[in-house]
Each structure stands twice: as structure tokens, then as C-alpha cells.
């Protein structure tokens, strides 16, 4: 087993990141970690550790590692706050924010992922996919899959001149085309979430 690659340290502005090898077994990795920290005990004492990465640890394994770095070597594990990170990530630029304009038709097999709003100046054909953190507007027929508010914004909408998607997703809500009664919309439509459901209604500028 290669000794060199089983443990790596990376310095970031938030603190050290300890990278553990995924291939070796846990016992070996733990021993190597202790050995490495032992070699530079003074250097590591008091250091902040931002994260442990590289392999998925069980709860017990993680506790063990944290115990080693905290108690045996006097390093400080920085608590990460998952909730605050997630909240920050939700796209907030629905009214004013990053927008991608695609000036062509998306054909089967193409996939667009964007951390903002997406406007397609063409059709989105069956087999094509758009995943946007914000709103999706299609200036043509939307026949493929569209996911607006993909990282959790339930206020996002999907609008199209012809809204006939294979599947429509907004945040974590999913709607799909009816199995029968294939219909052709004659007017622009808009889809949004209202009371825990995806609602599709004609897009009429008068009522807005």
C-alpha cells in the first residue's frame, strides 16, 4: 500500500482539510493519520480543522478521528453549520438575477444546467432537459423536461408559448404529462406552485 497517498493535508482560509484515502481500510488510515500527526506534533497543535474529506466515514469512525485530532493532538475541529449553507444556496434572483439566454432549439439529448434563470429562444424538444435554480421561460414549445427552482426555491415558475412538457418540476414538486388526452395548448401557459401543487394556467397579461 502506498504510504504517501493515504493521508493528505490541505490548508484553506477556513482551516486545514484532512484528506483520507478511500482505498485503504479504516484501521490503516487511522494509524497513518496518527503517525503523521505525531511527526509534527508541535506544528499541528492548536490548528483549526475545517473538514475531513476523501472517504465516507461511519458515525463511529468520524467520532474516532475527531477524538484523535481534538484530544490527542490539541487541534480544533471547526463545527460546520449545514443549515446556514443550504439556505444561502437557494437561488434568490427570481426577480432580478443571473439569467442564461439560449438562442436556439434544444434537441433530444441536450441538457442545460444553470444556477440562475434560463430563457430559451426556441423549442425544447422531448429528450432535452433544463435544470435551472431560477425561472424557466421558453419562447417556443416546451416538450422536454424542465426543472425550475432546482435547488429549492418554490417560488420559481416555468412559462412557455406551448407548455407540453414530458415532466415538469419546480423545487421538489413533480408533475408529468397526462398518459392519455394528449392536448395541444393554443395559448401561452405558466406553471407554478400553489398550495403544495403544481398549477398550470393560461398566461394572461390582463390579470397581472
Amino acid at each position: 500500500m502506498a504510504l504517501k497517498s493515504s493521508i493528505e493535508f490541505k490548508g484553506t482560509k477556513d482551516g486545514l482539510i484532512i484528506h483520507l484515502n478511500e482505498v485503504s481500510d479504516f484501521e490503516y488510515v487511522r494509524e497513518q493519520l496518527i503517525k503523521k500527526l505525531e511527526m509534527a506534533r508541535n506544528f499541528f497543535a492548536g490548528a483549526k480543522v475545517a473538514a475531513i474529506e476523501g472517504r465516507s466515514l461511519t458515525e463511529n469512525e468520524e467520532k474516532e478521528i475527531i477524538d484523535i485530532i481534538n484530544n490527542r493532538f490539541g487541534m480544533v475541529m471547526v463545527e460546520k453549520n449545514n443549515n446556514s449553507i443550504e439556505k444561502e444556496d437557494i437561488f434568490k434572483g427570481l426577480d432580478e438575477g443571473h439569467t442564461k439566454f439560449l438562442r436556439w432549439t434544444l434537441r433530444s439529448g441536450s441538457k442545460i444546467e444553470f444556477k440562475g434563470n434560463v430563457v430559451v429562444m426556441g423549442d425544447v424538444n422531448p429528450g432535452a432537459e433544463i435544470i435551472a435554480h431560477g425561472n424557466i421561460v421558453v419562447m417556443g414549445a416546451l416538450r422536454g423536461v424542465a426543472h425550475a427552482g432546482a435547488n429549492g426555491n418554490t417560488k420559481a415558475f416555468v412559462a412557455a408559448i406551448k407548455l407540453q412538457p414530458t415532466q415538469l418540476r419546480i423545487a421538489n414538486y413533480i408533475a408529468r404529462a397526462p398518459d392519455r388526452n394528449y392536448y395541444k395548448p393554443e395559448y401561452p401557459e405558466i406553471a407554478f406552485i400553489n398550495e403544495d401543487m403544481i398549477i398550470i394556467e393560461p398566461y394572461l397579461t390582463k390579470n397581472r
Partner: peptide
């Protein structure tokens, strides 16, 4: 539908 879908992909490529 399957043939049209594949044709669409091909046109894209």
C-alpha cells in the same frame, strides 16, 4: 415517436 426522437438527437449532433 422513437424514430423522431432519435432523429432529433441526430440533428442536434
Amino acid at each position: 415517436i422513437s424514430a423522431v426522437r432519435d432523429a432529433d438527437r441526430i440533428i442536434g449532433l
